[in-house]
Amino acid sequence: MTPEALLGGFQTAPIQSARAFRAALEAMARPGTIWEVEGAMPPTPMSVAAGVLLLTLCDGTTPVHLGGSLDLPVVRDWVTFHTGAPLVAAEDARFALGTWADLTPVNRFAIGLPDYPDRSATLIVEMPRLDAEGARLTGPGIKDVAHLSLPETQAFRANRALFPQGFDTYLTCGSRLAGLPRSTIVEAV
């Protein structure tokens, strides 16, 4: 295992993971809001926010898919050492990490079963920028309307049509993250 992969985990896991979990929860509950997180120092090119999400949400029971640009030995080792998550193909993943180009087509990911819509994937999309502008978001957790710089709208509209099945999405950029649950109605502006 590469020495670099052993560094960059939480220093005080109980506190840091609790804070990160709160941010992840708030982000998913209030789509369009942007949250700052800290505590992980993953190897490049993974963002701090994506690293924090993996450390907080993944363990040996959550298979992870690494998209092409992140599927590097040092990233694989880092995920394995710090989370214990098995690395798998897109179809078998509970979490998938990559750029939007890495992760498309997104219809490869699990959308859950009618009886168990929770058995679905959560995508963590590494973004070049993340701002509260662009696509128009409405739905649960949004008072009136919110805006978020999504990589596209069509895929998220198709995902919304599957409700209550479908995947959920985190968007990450540097140390910031936002959530886009399957319940959000997305419109291009």
Binding site: L6, L7, G9, Q11, A13, F81, H82
Partner: peptide, 8 residues
């Protein structure tokens, strides 16, 4: 020594 992970 430096702690890399844990103790957990």
């Amino acid at each position: 020594h430096d702690l890399l992970r844990g103790p957990e």
